[in-house]
């Protein structure tokens, strides 16, 4: 189910933040069902980083994110967990360095 980062692939939407799935899962899953419908209708797969997957899965059982059917969505194929970034790839390491510098500069202000 994992494959490399392909930014030009229009059938894939990357979701880097946990809050998006949390928001869709709150209030009776209405929005989560709508998200699934949107994915099917537009033939899109949402790809989430391992970290987001773990954060969603680690939520308490009785919380809304704990009850959001992320695993069912993965089984159904419209959500996929991404591979860990390959840090030996120079583009990946350059992006990571830039991001780290950006965060540090913001923290020091």
């Amino acid at each position: 189910m994992n494959e490399g980062f392909e930014p030009s692939d229009e059938s894939v939407a990357w979701v880097a933040d946990t809050g998006f799935f949390v928001a869709c899962g709150r209030q009776d899953n209405d929005k989560f069902a709508a998200l699934e419908q949107f994915a099917h209708r537009n033939d899109i797969t949402f790809v989430i980083p391992e970290r987001v997957y773990e954060e969603l899965g680690g939520a308490p059982d009785r919380s809304a994110p704990g009850q959001t059917p992320t695993n069912a969505a993965i089984d159904a194929g419209w959500v996929r967990v991404a591979d860990e970034p390959d840090y030996t790839n120079p583009t990946v390491s350059a992006v990571m360095d830039n991001v780290r510098e950006f965060i540090e500069s913001k923290e020091n202000t």
Partner: peptide, 20 residues
């Protein structure tokens, strides 16, 4: 969300749900 849930010491996804 990340700063708030960390300082509130809540599991991240749950903390985000509370903030929302």
């Amino acid at each position: 969300e990340r700063v708030a849930t960390r300082e509130l010491d809540l599991q991240h996804a749950f903390g985000v749900a509370v903030l929302q």
